[in-house]
Amino acid sequence: MNGCFSESFGSPARAFLGAAREALGAPALVLGASYIGFGSLVRASDMTVAMGLYSTFSGWALPGQVALVELYAVGASLAAIIVAVALTNVRLLPMTLALMPHLRAPGTKRWVYYLAAHLIAVTGWVNAMRRCPELPEEERLPFLFGFSGMLWVVCLVATVAGYYLAGSVPAQVSLGLVFLNPIYFMLVLTADLRDPARLRAMALGAMLGPLFYFVDPDWGLLLTGVVAGTLGWLPKLVRTPSRG
């Protein structure tokens, strides 16, 4: 699934449908499995299936959802929950910023971008970062809407499925399901990363992530991103001093 896709889908409508179909492969399977895990977590936390659905619908981004439900279950204060979710999801800011130049198309209304923003999450983002720069401008937003929109729907269904499956899946199997997520992210992120600066940033981030988590579980991830990202980026700055 990592062939050359430099050619266009043919039209915005085809880009939307083609992207939705692509999402239904490995991405939907892996993310669906992860959301089955989330659904069972919701049930284990004594929340209702409607609450789980509302979470996936309104606050779609798995690590933040898990943090929220776990903290809610132990009775954490609202302030503590908001800080934890904010820090877990702050990655969405640089992700959105980095993707935006590859989404822009002339004549697009601003609210369309704000709508698309809700669909920016790791799986869709990785694929959009890879594909959108090579697509004609008018097919980029349709690609994101098709790909991530399909994933969103899959996640909603999986949340419900996980809620009702909770407890009926052997512990060993659910262990495997939980593990799909980090492995998938690792493989798609490293799949075809050609920019040496981003590669350096990722290698450093992988090393510093667990280390900084021990130093401070709340701020560790943000610190990892800024330190590893900056160190990975610096050599590029030195080598291309004239580019603004």
């Binding site: 690590p63 702050v90 990655r91 640089p94 992700m95 910023l97 980095a98 790791v122 980090p182 992210f185 690792m186 992120l189 990363l193 600066a197 981003r198 350096r200 940033a201 990722m202 290698a203 450093l204 981030g205 992988a206 510093l208 992530g209 900084f212 560790g220 991830l221 943000l222 990892t224 991103g225 800024v226 330190v227 590893a228 990202g229 900056t230 990975g232 980026w233």
Partner: peptide, 11 residues
């Protein structure tokens, strides 16, 4: 770079 480092750190 920060975005990719954040994701690598998270994974």
């Amino acid at each position: 770079c920060v975005a990719y480092a954040l994701l690598a750190g998270l994974i």
